[in-house]
């Protein structure tokens, strides 16, 4: 295994991103804490997915830069970025007739060339990814026959096989039930404990507080606040982000904030 311990930094410097002619994010600054899980939260349309796309070089910025190890991410060859940064987008497609191991093999593409396609280190990385995502018993199963949680674990395993110090995930649990959500979040937590720097867009606020070390709260394309969930999560913040009233209590087991007594603010 390549040593992946927080060696590669990713930050946005004065970043401005547009969708067509609409500015989604303007002059945003952000540095992902090394070796930690960062959750980007906020209401629909606040620009969190756009930010993630910008950070992962899918969107070209209109202004400002995304810095990968201090250098503009768009100045690197795309394949070199793919060896430093893995991305799991929301709109993945699971083609018919592809099995789990075949999917994970795609994660090795950035490490291979057209001429030299398969090395020992590739198989090692795949075995490692299968183990890490607990997919050993499922490696020959067709992707389309898996449950949602298993399939999402297979996609994450593909990113693991990419052996990157950075991992960006766009709503990795959005289509999953509670059990499968926990399955995926715990895997993400384990990966960060091994040293990966992870950023994910998450809708579920309590899960974000529970599994992330760092929360970035966004609204209208701007960062409202960021920091450790226990410190920044207040009922005022929830009201500002989502327009709902609630009370926060610490989880008796983990201490992370839980939302209770949630109600809509009635407009006058």
């Amino acid at each position: 295994m390549v040593d992946q311990t927080g060696t590669v930094s990713l930050s946005a410097d004065n970043l401005t991103l547009q969708h067509g002619k609409t500015t989604i994010i303007e002059s945003l600054n952000l540095t992902l804490p090394l070796g930690k899980v960062t959750a980007i939260v906020g209401p629909n349309g606040c620009g969190k997915s756009t930010l993630l796309n910008g950070l992962s070089r899918i969107h070209h910025p209109i202004g400002g830069t995304v810095l990968l190890n201090g250098k503009d991410i768009h100045k690197y060859p795309s394949k070199e970025v793919a060896r430093k940064l893995a991305l799991l987008p929301q709109d993945t497609i699971s083609p018919d007739g592809i099995n789990v191991e075949e999917l994970i093999r795609f994660g090795r593409h950035p490490h291979q060339s057209t001429m030299k396609q398969w090395k020992m280190s590739d198989q090692e990385a795949i075995d490692y990814a299968l183990n890490a995502a607990d997919l050993n018993g499922l490696k020959d199963r067709l992707l389309n026959t898996l449950s949602g949680g298993q399939r999402q674990r297979a996609w994450i395993a593909m990113s693991i096989a990419q052996e990157t110090p950075l991992l960006l995930l766009d709503e990795p649990t959005s289509a999953l039930d509670l059990g499968h959500q926990i399955e995926v979040f715990e895997l993400i937590k384990e990966l960060s404990e091994e040293g990966k720097t992870i950023a994910m867009v998450v809708h579920d606020l309590p899960s974000a507080c529970r599994y992330a070390d760092h929360i970035v709260a966004m609204k209208d394309g701007k960062i409202v606040t960021q920091g450790c969930p226990k410190k920044i999560m207040t009922k005022e913040l929830v009201l500002a982000l989502y327009g709902i009233e609630c009370d926060l209590i610490p989880d008796p087991m983990t201490g992370s904030p839980i939302l209770i007594n949630i109600k809509r603010v009635k407009s006058l």
């Binding site: 796309n53 992962s56 070089r57 899918i58 060859p77 795309s78 394949k79 070199e80 970025v81 793919a82 060896r83 940064l85 893995a86 991305l87 799991l88 987008p89 709109d91 993945t92 497609i93 795609f106 994660g107 593409h109 950035p110 990419q162």
Partner: peptide
């Protein structure tokens, strides 16, 4: 986006 993520 997966393809872009893989460096293509």
């Amino acid at each position: 986006r997966v393809a872009i993520g893989l460096g293509y």
